[in-house]
């Protein structure tokens, strides 16, 4: 189990819109509000603050969520890279959609990550609650969810916070080491069809 999981998890939570297991608002409400199983496109800005770094590292790019089929995560700045997240794997791919060589095969911990992601994709609260305790507040238009990691994960992830309204607007992951990552989403569009490249990336390989 590693913190990749927490981070990947949070991102997926964000983009799929699984967000608030609120007392006031139910999962189903949030999910349909943010757009369960629909195609969502958005731009993102990630800011990482590391204890070991004098200044934060900022990266930018776009994300496409193919309603349960997979996620395309494209970094455009400071370098170009594409990651494909499906139910069973996370992989970096090259321009042609081929899995990059030299990438470490998926270790068991990584499989746990993908399993959690898929449980997120399926809005599987049962699986999620095995690793996090969740607390939510606000309204459908302005909600906040706090996820506190349990067990082994708690050694690495201190806290995950998600905020949003019609879409997920922001995810903050704080690690026990003092490092933190903040991902902000903007220009989110619902139901814009996947581009042919995105389709190829998700289905191909």
């Amino acid at each position: 189990m590693d913190k990749r999981m927490g981070i990947a998890l949070a991102i997926c939570a964000v983009v799929t819109g699984v967000s608030a297991y609120a007392n006031a608002i139910t999962v189903k409400e949030i999910a349909s509000h943010v757009g369960e199983n629909s195609v969502i496109h958005a731009e993102f800005t990630q800011t990482r603050k590391l204890v070991a770094l004098k200044r934060p590292i900022v990266s930018k790019g776009s994300v496409a969520v193919a309603g349960g089929k997979g996620i395309v995560w494209q970094i455009e700045h400071p370098y170009q890279a594409t990651y494909i997240i499906t139910k069973n794997s996370i992989a970096e791919v090259d321009q042609d959609g081929r899995k990059k060589s030299g990438q470490a095969e998926q270790a068991q911990q990584f499989k746990q990550v993908t399993k959690l992601i898929s449980s997120l994709l399926e809005l599987n609260e049962k699986d999620l609650s095995e690793n996090f305790s969740m607390l939510s507040s606000g309204t459908l238009d302005q909600w906040t969810v706090n996820l506190a990691a349990r067990d082994t994960l708690a050694k690495y992830i201190a806290k995950i916070t998600m905020r949003g309204g019609s879409f997920v607007d922001e995810v903050t992951i704080e690690e026990t080491s003092g490092d933190s990552s903040q991902i902000q989403f903007h220009s989110a569009r619902k139901d814009e069809p996947l581009s042919s490249r995105e389709l190829m990336l998700i289905q191909g390989r």
Binding site: D2, R4, A8, Q46, V51, Y79, E105, S177
Partner: peptide
């Protein structure tokens, strides 16, 4: 540093280039 996925088992401050993480991960 920029990818949210490529982190490895050990924090960036302890294993910046990820050499050790990669080795442990390949076991």
């Amino acid at each position: 540093l920029a990818s949210p996925f490529a982190h490895g088992m050990i924090s960036v401050s302890k294993d910046p280039f990820g050499f050790y993480s990669n080795w442990l991960g390949h076991l």
